[in-house]
Nucleic acid binder design. Structure first.
Length: 487
DNA sequence: GTCCATAGTCGTCGGATGAG
DNA sequence: CTCATCCGACGACTATGGAC
């Protein structure tokens, strides 16, 4: 088993730009500004850093390759993993280097079983949720009030309108790294609705797991069987990550696939468009806290730690730490269900009581798609709410543009005037008003007035306004208006 | 009818951002 | 040498309307 593991695994490498350590399971290409690096630094006390530096020197890892000492053999597995795990592990955490107490998977996850296929065996664990299961602020049943059809016009995929969420497979993989040809999905979690014994629906999370790399053909075979029963996917960033990765694995195992061609609701992009303005980060773990009302328990593990836990398991055969990975994957899957409900609800039945920032985000998306009626409604609702000034102006700009494109100039005018009245530096609204008077009503005096107003705004910027391109543009406009007025 | 300036639209590019 | 998507910026192209 050791031969599978590259000698770069569990590698500590020096970050290029600052004297901090980046811990990573592939050749590190991370900068100090990466979130992982910052997080790592947060959790690493100075004392620990020094200890690690000493250890790294002993291991022959130093900055630059010029002065490399021959590295000592890494046998037995160094305890450095432990050091890094400590901030995230309860103090009762088992000692990984204790070879006497290795616990195999089947003992730790009693519900799991080894399933045999024509291509070998694979560990499979099912977890069944009733639909009244509470997850954060929501219940799983909430999703079935909605349809993927709600997302069809927004994602511009009509196939989403033809199926129920019961026809979709929720999917989330845990892998040996972020990307690259050598990355494996050592766990594939799928979730689906199915009728229970009494006819009522339930939600099944099924996790396929590679006890070692040789199990992969069996995993793919079992996954393929399940895929045949379903038509589409719900994922979080699966379009960029999980699906291309799995497709690569199918190809490597000489199995035909059509994963990319399926209807696919990737929740990341709708979530970003709907909530980025209000919530900032739209990582699934952030959305759980800020949107779904969920706090992960102590049993969870941060995503970036997962590849090394798997490597640790491959080396030692001890699956104790992997229990947390199974848990993590399960929660991801269930979060996708309630997140899908939130997304489809927001797209199909926005509530006037929703946060005005969310109504703005939705209205803007609808406006971009040409859904003018709905867009106007939501942008006007948002404008009545309590928006931060910057978004308030962005909201009014989008509304003004919508009305202008619709030829409704007289209705757009008061919108632009509202921006001009409430902003100290919004030249764009002034220019729109000037255009309106010049080209729509030929009130050249008014047009000149608003152009001059805009110019005085730019002048108030001081040195920055002096050479700003908008100034030249405004002066050009003013000259033209002056000529028209003179003739 | 032609010419010109202006405004609006469309395609493209680079930077961010998620996924483990 | 991940990769799909979004977004803002920017240049090229097209449509429009006024002047002659």
């Amino acid at each position: 088993m050791r031969s599978i593991v590259s000698k770069n695994d569990d590698f500590y490498s020096l970050c290029d730009r600052r004297p901090c350590y980046v811990w990573y399971t592939a050749p590190a290409r991370l900068s100090c500004d990466s979130p992982r690096c910052r997080l790592q630094l947060e959790h690493m006390a100075d004392q620990k850093k020094e200890e690690l530096q000493k250890k790294l020197r002993r291991l022959g890892v130093v900055r630059g390759t010029g002065q490399l000492k021959p590295a000592r053999k890494l046998k037995p597995a160094p305890t450095v993993d432990e050091e890094l795990l400590r901030p995230f592990t309860p103090s009762t955490s088992p000692n990984l280097s204790d070879d006497d107490d290795i616990q195999p998977l089947e003992t730790l996850l009693p519900g799991g079983e080894i399933v045999s296929t024509a291509d070998g065996d694979c560990f499979v664990l099912d977890h069944v949720y009733t639909l009244d299961h509470q997850h954060g602020d929501d219940r799983l049943a909430d999703l079935l009030d909605f349809s993927p059809a709600a997302a069809a016009p927004f994602l511009q995929d009509e196939r989403l309108a033809q199926h129920d969420f019961r026809d979709f497979l929720f999917l989330d993989t845990e892998t040996t790294g972020l990307a690259g040809a050598g990355t494996l999905a050592f766990m594939v979690g799928v979730g689906f609705f199915e009728p229970g014994s009494q006819g009522e629906d339930r939600f099944v999370v099924r996790q396929y797991f590679l006890r070692d790399h040789g199990d992969e053909p069996a995993l793919l075979l079992l996954l393929d069987e399940l895929l045949a029963e379903k038509t589409g996917f719900v994922t979080f960033n699966g379009r960029s990550f999980d699906i291309p990765l799995l497709e690569g694995r199918f190809i490597m195992n000489r199995m035909p696939t059509e994963l990319r061609d399926r209807p696919h609701l990737d929740l990341l992009h709708p979530a970003r468009r709907l909530w980025r303005h209000r919530l900032g980060s739209c990582a699934l773990s952030s959305l759980e806290g800020s949107l779904l009302g969920l706090r992960r328990s102590q049993d969870d593990v941060p995503g970036w730690l997962i590849p090394s836990l798997y490597n640790q398991y491959l080396r030692s055969g001890d699956a104790r730490e992997l229990v947390r990975v199974f848990y993590h994957n399960q929660i991801d899957m269930v979060s996708m269900v309630t997140l899908a409900a939130r997304v489809t609800r927001q797209l199909s039945r926005p509530d006037p009581a929703d946060h005005p920032i969310d109504l703005f985000s939705l209205g803007k998306w609808q406006a971009d798609l040409g859904l003018s009626t709905e867009a106007e409604q939501n942008l006007r609702l948002a404008a009545q709410g309590d928006l931060p000034l910057e978004l308030y102006h962005a909201n009014l700009h989008r509304l003004g543009l919508l009305l202008k494109r619709d030829g409704r100039y007289p209705e757009a005018l008061p919108i632009w005037q509202q921006i001009a009245a409430t902003s100290l530096d919004d030249v764009a609204a002034h220019v729109e008003i000037a255009k309106y008077y010049e080209w729509q009503t030929q009130e050249l005096e008014q047009a000149r007035f608003w152009t001059e107003q805009a110019l005085s705004l730019v002048a108030s910027w001081g040195r920055r306004g002096q050479h700003h391109p908008v100034r030249a543009e405004l002066e050009h406009r003013l000259n033209r208006l002056q000529q028209k007025l003179n003739s």
